[in-house]
Computed example of a mutant assay.
Amino acid sequence: MTRPIGKTLAGLALGAVMAGSLAAQEESVKFSIALPLSGPLAFSGEVQQAGWQSALEYINANGGAAGRPIEAEFYDDEYKVDLGVAGFKRAASAGDLVFAAGDGTPFVRAISPENNDTYRVLMSATGFASDLVDTERYKYHFLPGPTYSDMVRELFAYMKAETENPTVALVYSTTEFGRDPIENARAYADEMGIEIVLEEETKWSGVDVTASAIKLRNAAADYVIFHGYAGNVWPEILKTARDYRVESTFMGTAYNSDPEMVRGVGPAVDGYVGVVPYDLTMEDAEGEYAVAIRDSLQEWEAKEYNGYANMGYVQSWITALILRDVIAGAIEAGEELNGENLIARINDLEDWDSKGILGDVTFVDQRIPSAVVYRYSVSDDAFSMTELDY
């Protein structure tokens, strides 16, 4: 498969993916994709770029979008909103941009007013912010997965199935990301008969976790949900809480539940329950798309295949596949490839066959409101994930 590549243009790292033989036959469909390819989140951007590249290679090798190849230009925004906006405007000014992928919700919030009024380009992004269901504010944005509030509600549904009158502690960062689902979580708890016995807000980094662990011991909740971190803080709170003999079931939302991240915490995280947007277990993959993802992971020389997929890698794939189908439908119907026509086709998707990635997909408020819940088994020399049925 194609490895991530880059070259400099106006200070931004760029790369392109297109199947040459197909490109010679038909005009390409242009994508612009912003990713953090440098800086502290470069590890995430590189995985997402690899996912996009392998997905587009697969799509173009199988006829593209109604015979037209998809060409993606990548640029490094360093996870900075101003760079993301500048890159989007540069790409959109050419007049032939069909889709733009943003790097996180802050970028989407910054560009959406202007995109709604001026560019009207179909968009998506890596974030799962709860307000993305506001289809007037984000007219041309779709989310190929659940919101953070959807994820919390899914964890609450699991609690209710497992425990009578469950209690829960919410541990989250002070960031906008961390606070995102908390108000909805309170409403869901009231609705579902779940008691929130502790809300513990921590800094994003540099946290003395001892105080949080003591609060968790005193709260004695049946469950503890971590949200709003990126591999930082929550593992130390969990480990310290275990040392303090906290017996709660620890849980987390998507960015705390990537297989590689959970495995890295070590045996203290054994029994953890995490919610993610997609099926990330690859060894038992069934369905054309899931098998194609597994094959691409096995061929990826830069990263050793371990039987599981990174969430960002799969998100790139499912986004590309959905786009291929809605763009192909518009081409075949003779429609202009603009945001109005394409978001309408996104909204009309019902029981779309994800072929092993997530089951049948129906969009509601321009997002996929379903998820997968796993229990993680972790020891010094073994790791596994079991999908929970409840």
Rank of each mutant, 00 (worst) to 15 (best):
L14G: 10
T386G: 06
Y223N: 08
S377N: 15
P259T: 01
E164S: 11
T175D: 07
E301H: 06
A371I: 11
G67P: 02
M1G: 11
F142I: 01
L22C: 10
M251V: 03
A55H: 02
I70L: 09
G271S: 11
G334E: 05
R324G: 03
K139E: 06
A72G: 01
E57G: 15
G15V: 02
L97C: 10
A72M: 03
I318N: 01
I331F: 14
Y305S: 13
E335R: 09
A382M: 09
E71Q: 15
D353M: 13
V121Y: 00
Y223M: 01
M261W: 04
T163K: 14
N310Y: 13
V326N: 01
A213F: 04
N310I: 01
G95W: 01
D96M: 06
G127E: 02
A55I: 03
E176Q: 15
K355W: 08
F383P: 06
A101H: 10
A86E: 07
E114R: 09
E136T: 13
T386A: 14
A23H: 11
V224G: 03
Y255G: 00
F142A: 03
E332Y: 00
E183H: 10
T118Q: 14
T175G: 12
G6L: 03
A86Y: 12
A110E: 07
M261Y: 13
R179V: 04
G104V: 01
M123S: 05
I322E: 02
R245M: 14
V265L: 06
A344C: 03
L132Q: 04
V168Y: 06
A169F: 06
K7P: 03
N310L: 01
A211P: 06
P259Y: 07
A13C: 05
D381A: 13
E340S: 11
A309S: 14
E78T: 02
Y255Q: 09
G95K: 08
L56A: 05
Y289I: 04
V273N: 00
S93D: 15
